[in-house]
Design a protein around this nucleic acid. Structure first.
Length: 433
RNA sequence: GGCCCCAUCGUCUAGCGGUUAGGACGUCGGGUUUUCAUCCCGAAAAUCGAGGGUUCGAGUCCCUCUGGGGUCACCA
């Protein structure tokens, strides 16, 4: 049995994007599922659009998501080079071979393939039979005047050289397939199997675009999406788990993957579900893991206790900062902050008294002291804690406030209460008894 | 415009001739709760794009139309 060999062939013209990740995911799953080899080829045939560092961005992006490949520019195997720019002479020789056979011709410094006019048909592994009339294929350029091969040419030559058995790519390549098929015929080589999955769309139902849409993988990393969540989400687009599961990791995706379950319609890349999944993955991390992730992106030190308080309150790591900020920065507390909160001045004064009497500063003692205070004074629980919240954090939506007090420490809590008292005492003097 | 691909709730999807068309996200309502969130419960939401066939029976098969997308480069 022939070993399955697949490839992904991103071009180094920018950054690694969602589309690259998606192609990789499907090829990776198909290949790992079937015990084959995944090849990464960096299609650098466009000298004009070549971007410095783009290749590293591709490695970084795909590695971040948990993918690995068996051969590539960074991992030479026996089928290189893995960059077209390093085998220009081979393309030239192949083109000359076609010229000799009368299947190509020179044209203003370039070399064009001579269309045979034959119909081209293939059985797509995802879509079934697809047929193009021979008249659709023109005499297309295979070697540009700068000596570089065009995409269609390098793809065929390289896929032959690399012994690719399955080409799994986006549907935007369907119309390129007949040209490539014609090339395989000209070389007398049996073409690989083709599988064209749907392309991801944006909210306007248009193909995801580098220009218009936020597709740079780094953007997702910076926003605090976990790679597992992104991979899981991508796995939900254009594919469905046979058991209807929505949450699964890469290993399970590989295990269950089947081209037959790949849908034909283009899914919209709507991040709402991604956010939900990301929250799910964040909630499933341990304190240690979460702290590590948080500190990688934080300017101050996040403790395990702090992380534990926000775990269920964020869906992206980037949301942590606004929730944790008050721990390190004293909030600006003004009187307008307390609008609508009854008796806040009294809350502060009494709390100050009770809290300063706590000998052993821990959650249990804070809880019981404040519960007792609320009961004795007949405070509305919600109002009382809202006052504490505002005084200590300057915000109305915060982590649990008593737990936060423990982390803040007694001195800091008392100090913030005293500050607030100065502001509030003038406002509601009548309420001070 | 030519060619090609596609079409089930707002979104992701299940469905592979007989289902009250199911699930998830989101939305809305309720419960738990010191805020927010989590968690739990519930609801609305697809006349399966339209019209013809085939069949005892069609979301599922066929045709037409409509709509959307892709592609027609010395970009990939």
């Amino acid at each position: 049995m022939i070993e399955i060999r697949t490839r992904i062939a991103p071009s180094p013209t920018g950054f690694a994007h969602i589309g690259t990740a998606y192609v990789c995911l499907l090829n990776y799953a198909f290949t790992r599922k079937n015990g084959g080899k995944l090849i990464l080829r960096v299609d650098d045939t466009d000298t004009k659009r070549h971007v410095e560092g783009a290749e590293d961005a591709i490695y970084a992006g795909l590695s971040w998501l948990g993918f690995d490949w068996d051969e590539g520019p960074d991992k030479p195997g026996g089928f290189g080079p893995y960059r077209p720019s390093e085998k220009l002479d081979i393309y030239k020789a192949k083109a000359d071979e076609l010229i000799k056979k009368g299947q190509a011709f020179e044209d203003e410094g370039a070399i064009r393939f001579k269309n045979t006019g034959q119909d081209q048909t293939w059985r797509d592994l995802i879509r079934g039979e697809i047929k193009f009339g021979g008249g659709e294929i023109t005499d297309f350029v295979i070697i540009k005047s700068d000596g570089y091969p065009t995409y269609n040419f390098n793809t065929v030559v390289d896929d032959i050289d690399m012994q690719i058995t399955h080409v799994i790519r986006g549907e935007e390549h369907i119309s390129n397939t007949p040209r490539q098929l014609a090339l395989y015929q000209a070389f007398g080589v049996k073409p690989p199997e083709f599988a064209h999955f749907p392309t991801l769309r944006n909210a306007d139902h248009k193909k995801l675009s580098k220009r218009r849409d936020p597709v740079d993988l780094r953007l997702y990393r910076e926003a605090g999406y976990l790679p597992q969540a992104l991979v899981n989400f991508l796995g939900l687009l254009g594919w469905s788990h046979p058991d209807g599961k929505e949450v699964f990791d890469l290993a399970e995706f590989v295990e269950k993957f089947d081209l037959n379950r790949v849908s034909h319609a283009g899914p919209i890349f709507d991040t709402k579900k991604l956010d939900w999944l990301n929250g799910l993955y964040i909630r499933s991390t341990s304190d240690v893991e979460l702290v590590k992730m948080l500190n990688e992106r934080s300017t101050y030190n996040v403790s395990e206790e702090m992380a534990a308080l926000i775990r269920e309150r964020i869906s992206k790591l980037s949301e942590a900062d606004s929730l944790l900020d008050f721990f390190v920065n004293q909030p600006v507390v003004g009187r307008d902050l307390f609008e609508g909160v009854e008796k806040s001045s009294l809350h502060v004064t009494t709390a100050l008294h009770v809290l300063s009497n706590i000998k052993d500063w821990n959650l249990e003692n804070i809880n019981s002291a404040l519960t007792k205070l609320i009961e004795e004074k007949g405070f509305k629980t919600g109002d009382f804690y809202m006052t504490m919240r505002l005084v200590l954090t300057g915000k109305r939506m915060t982590p649990p406030i008593n737990e936060s007090m423990v982390i803040l420490g007694q001195d800091e809590v008392l100090q913030r209460l005293e500050e607030a008292q100065k502001i509030l005492i003038d406002i509601e003097p009548s309420e001070i008894s």
